[in-house]
Design a protein around this nucleic acid. Structure first.
Lengths: 226, 226
DNA sequence: TTAATACTCAATTAATCTATTGAATACTTA
DNA sequence: TAAGTATTCAATAGATTAATTGAGTATTAA
């Protein structure tokens, strides 16, 4: 009477653990986080996560075996993407849980921002009110493809790489709010640093698109004429 | 310029992975699932999960190190509980993700229920409508403490252990709907089997209290006079 | 056809994790 | 105070995992 029940439970939890094992490695979590922003080739994922291509490929196959991501071959490239949006939601839940339960996360963040005065993220609510009123310029510094996949309505798309060349398009008489992939992406930090050095008044929005979507805020899709 | 950013990311994802590592073992997931139902001593957790006490204790400490559970000493017992309800929600998200992405889960479930005709769970919506009308008797077969922590309004509490002694309290002229901790708990299956053998018309509700709560249904708390 | 690019595979090593055992600690009751 | 119960600790062996390396396959471009 006990045995078949135990075997059943063991098998079921074994399956659940496949998901857990997939998200038990820091590098795989970083890959998942990147894939939350959109599809990517192995090489790009490897580069962005600081892995060798072979190593990234292996991690991606583990994620695929857990059915968290899927891959399609396009020409000579293999393009990985999240299996579905639920995976993104799951990753976010896990991230929020870590932020709320593990004090170390806040510590690491603080330590990283130390010495970069005023780089603390601004208040989201007040900010989005200003955005609605058009009282600030919102700047999306992610690569263009990510902007097209979803951005804050009215935001200007200038990837960090090109920022130096497009400074003329930005106003000196208005606040500039830069955002990127989320709290652990450094693109917006670098953007704000550069803008301040050039005399702009710039602040950083910590939330990424996934966060804003989860908060129920409207997200625009596709290109926008600047 | 690249180095400090990489170190920052490595540290952050390392923290996230603490959560992932904690939920990467089948036994720890089973312990978490049990704790979603309420606080328990090490010994009870060990017994219910089929672990030795020493082993259960070690797993619990790993869960505690990841801040998913907390422990309090009461007399000679150490009582473990979830750190907060977010953990329960996280576990549920993970479970739902596994169910939706891993076909094996459904297979294992089907195989287990094979040969137990009519044990397939009944339609939740139709059922809850009947419950509201009082057209069925709802039976909670979990231990009393778990019933008190939260149950379907109007449900009768008869733990599986005592069921044989309380058969007289159940109606022969009405459907009986038994439920327990959720889809992977076998208490309600055993209850339905026993009831059918005794000539009752019994069916099983697959959802547990956590599922019903997540669906936004009302949950009653505390004892109920039968 | 050849060379280059993008990715995967297989084998190795070092590190980490799991379950087991027996002993140690802490609290309660007799 | 002694005995019993509940839990944790420490040491171990076996299993699993991660990163590395070098080779292998598939596709594209020259």
């Amino acid at each position: 009477m006990k045995n078949p029940n135990r075997a059943f439970k063991d098998e079921i939890y074994e399956q659940f653990a496949r998901i857990g094992k997939a998200v038990s490695s820091p590098k795989r979590l970083e890959l998942l986080d990147l894939l939350c922003q959109g599809r990517r080739t192995v090489e790009v994922l490897a580069k962005e996560s600081g892995l060798t291509v072979a190593n990234a490929s292996q991690h991606l196959q583990i994620l695929r075996a857990a059915r968290l991501v899927a891959a399609e071959k396009e020409g000579q490239f293999v393009i990985y993407r999240l299996a579905n949006e639920t995976v993104c939601e799951f990753f976010r839940t896990m991230r929020v849980l870590a932020e709320s339960r593990l004090a170390e996360v806040e510590q690491i963040k603080r330590r990283f921002l130390e010495g970069r005065e005023g780089m603390e993220p601004v208040d989201r609510k007040a900010l989005l009110e200003l955005v609605r009123k058009g009282a600030v310029t919102v700047l999306d510094v992610r690569p263009v493809e990510e902007y097209n996949a979803g951005h804050i309505p009215g935001a200007l798309s200038i990837p960090l790489k090109n920022l130096r060349l497009h400074l003329a398009e930005l106003p000196h008489d208005q606040d500039i709010v830069a955002y990127c992939r989320g709290p652990y992406c450094v693109l917006s930090i670098q953007a704000v640093e550069m803008l301040r050095a050039k005399g702009f008044h710039a602040v950083r929005l910590e939330e990424g698109i996934q966060d804003l979507r989860a908060l129920g805020l409207p997200i625009a899709i596709g290109e926008t004429t600047k």
